[in-house]
Amino acid sequence: MSKDDLLVLHALRCGGWSSVARVAEATGLAEADVESELIDLGIDGLVTYDSGAFGAWGLTAAGKVADADRINDELESAGARPAVAAAFERFLVLNPELLDLCTAWQLRAVDGVMTVNDHHDAAYDARVLDRFADLDRRVAPVHTELSTALHRFGRYETRLTGALARAAAGESDYLADRIGSYHAVWAELHEDLLATLGTPR
């Protein structure tokens, strides 16, 4: 298999059932290239397309096994396990804070009642966004460690920084409220770290 196959296969492993566009976004590959990789992976029985209202590409059971093997080979042959494991530890320290921030974006305590944030208080929203930016700065060294250890991890920094930039520019659902949001990409990074290290949830 080529390197791009693994990127596509692993994007489905970490992102779950996905459209071609989402896999392209996750991998940084062109949609046409993703599509042809998916077709080849499908012929090998590693991925499948499920049509219907929630039509999407996903891994087969064989695909999940193949991904685990190849991702483990990649990790071990690069001698990257210690570095990825250390970066994961640092990620886990920041993870509860990211989840706190997403919650603070969605909910506010008003007289002790957790209430859906109606986003009428611009000062509060700006403060939450500011804390996201602060967290993003603090996670940067983790991205550097990861992408130094395994090049493919570099994509997460691009995607997270991109989501934050869109949120800062006014598309505020890019923080926690849509596919491709900071929260969604962060969760994929979390899943990737678990999958790469072979750690069960």
Partner: peptide
Amino acid sequence: SPHDMRGLAAATGIITARGGPASHAAV
């Protein structure tokens, strides 16, 4: 986890055993 996104999109509600009000499922 991200694997459940499609299931969450298809479902009208979610129950999880673990996690608090800031968990992935809740967000």
